[in-house]
Nucleic acid binder design. Structure first.
Lengths: 110, 110
DNA sequence: TAAGGCCATCGTAATATTGCAATATTACTC
DNA sequence: GAGTAATATTGCAATATTACGATGGCCTTA
């Protein structure tokens, strides 16, 4: 087929993969780093910075937002994006958890 | 267009994204964990374990191999896959590096 | 040599992702 | 209300990803 068979994998495997997916595009890597630096930023500024169109940038922002790593505040007719540190730290923890699991398994392997 | 514009991003951004891409599928998450546990394993065993066909599994193995996180040994007419711990640790380091960069930027942000 | 096991590759299909132009929407300002 | 600015959405095109059956190659063993 070609359809992703997520259902045959465990919840945890899907969770790790979902997190990695957010980071699996250079534009999103750049967006998160930019958002961290600028605290609050606008879509158009991000677009200008990463040199992608406003719609494409908006699309990437939605992808990141789905996992709550970016939060939004609406003020003065503008949408301010900022890094959700709590969610981001959770991201980091989950990924570290996975690496730890894999590493631990190598120790006990036959 | 729709073509990925990797060239407009930095080498580092592309590198982080490339690493994340390997982890961006539950099957590959499972494969790495399985390879860590079994030390040496066969494609058919992995396929059986993750419940995907042999060709699909082989395809995922190639993706992981591209970044050298899996290494292969041919013996007795079989291809044994095993985790390349050095490459895997490098993976972990790079990802940690990225998280650290982002976190650091939040401290100095205005 | 034949048979069987294992795997990569090819071919194909379905779906997902990436990207932009055009448009719609929303809110502020005059 | 008209104009402006920022963003989301829609529609479309190109490419990438995911998945499997079929095939062929290679090695081992009978």
């Amino acid at each position: 087929m070609g359809v992703s068979k997520n259902h045959i994998h465990t919840v945890r495997e899907n969770e790790y993969a979902a997190i990695a997916k957010v980071l699996a595009h250079p534009a999103r890597i750049a967006i998160l780093a930019f958002a961290a630096k600028s605290k609050e930023c606008l879509c158009k500024d991000i677009a200008e910075r990463i040199k992608l169109s406003q719609p494409t940038t908006s699309q990437h922002l939605q992808v990141i937002q789905k996992l709550r790593v970016l939060e939004t505040k609406f003020r003065d007719g503008k949408m301010y994006y900022s890094l959700n540190m709590e969610a981001f730290s959770n991201f980091k923890m989950k990924i570290s958890e996975y690496f730890a699991i894999v590493e631990k398994r190598t120790e006990n392997s036959t």
